[in-house]
């Protein structure tokens, strides 16, 4: 979902920054509150941040002969709600923009909105919806992480499709970018789903600690 530096026209880059800003600020508050809730909570926040940090660096080959990466956002969104991840996504994206010239400062609004807003909200609601329809927790977690990853790229397609609509118009152009991303992304999103279930399994083995931070509902 990394739209490269300078690769959104100024007006579009600004638009996505403005849209992302409130989530970023609310996310920062959420993170600050979370960090003040004691040492165990801090550690768990560290875990979800580290998960995103780690697996979003991995470019994984996909069946169609191209590579893409997981986002790792679903895990934190289920544990801490969607807002905190809006800020954690910004940290990861900022580092990648500055050190790796992957993504960019001008496009961070757009990239942050897809990875840090659409991603976690997709995970959050997909999780709730899956549980409501009677699916087991593990299946719900899988669906949440999958949707989070995949919908992030749907958002990126919309962002590119609107900014570079050409003669074919916004809808066709969006579908064109979606076709570039989706086939690559599908197996990566499935992989992220399994990986997130694995982390949850490991977390559940530490029931006492999870109870300490008041997250019994995920057990």
């Amino acid at each position: 979902m990394h739209i490269m530096e300078g690769f959104l026209p100024k007006a579009y880059a600004l638009f996505w920054w403005v849209l992302y800003m409130p989530f970023l600020i609310m996310g920062m508050k959420k993170l600050k509150n979370g960090l003040e809730k004691g040492h165990d909570n801090k550690l768990l926040i560290g875990l979800v941040a580290a998960f995103t940090f780690c697996i979003s660096a991995l470019k994984i080959p996909s069946v169609v002969g191209s590579c893409s990466h997981p986002t790792g956002i679903g895990l934190g969104a289920i544990l801490f709600g969607p807002l905190m991840m809006a800020f954690i996504a910004a940290i990861v994206l900022l580092l990648q923009a500055l050190i790796l010239s992957h993504g960019g400062i001008t496009t961070l609004g757009a990239n942050g909105f897809s990875m840090g807003v659409v991603g976690p909200f997709a995970a959050f609601f997909a999780y709730k919806l899956a549980l409501k329809s009677g699916l087991s927790k593990k299946v719900a977690i899988f669906i949440a992480a999958f949707s989070s990853n995949f919908l992030t790229y749907v958002m990126t397609s919309i962002q590119l499709g609107t900014a570079f609509s050409g003669q074919e118009g916004v809808v066709l152009s969006t579908l064109k970018y979606l076709s570039i991303f989706s086939l690559t992304q599908l197996p990566i999103a499935i992989l992220e789903g399994f990986l997130t279930v694995l982390i949850f399994n490991l977390l559940r083995e530490n029931k006492e600690q999870i109870r300490l931070v008041g997250m019994e509902e995920i057990l």
């Binding site: 739209i3 530096e5 300078g6 690769f7 923009a97 590119l160």
Partner: peptide
């Protein structure tokens, strides 16, 4: 296959359709 990044493929598509597009900011 070449296993290029999907992000890069999207960027190539923009350059293909908008050869005149100049990134207005560089890292």
């Amino acid at each position: 296959s070449e296993y290029k990044g999907a992000d890069g493929a999207a960027q190539d598509q923009i350059i293909l359709e908008y050869p005149d597009y100049e990134p207005w900011f560089t890292p």
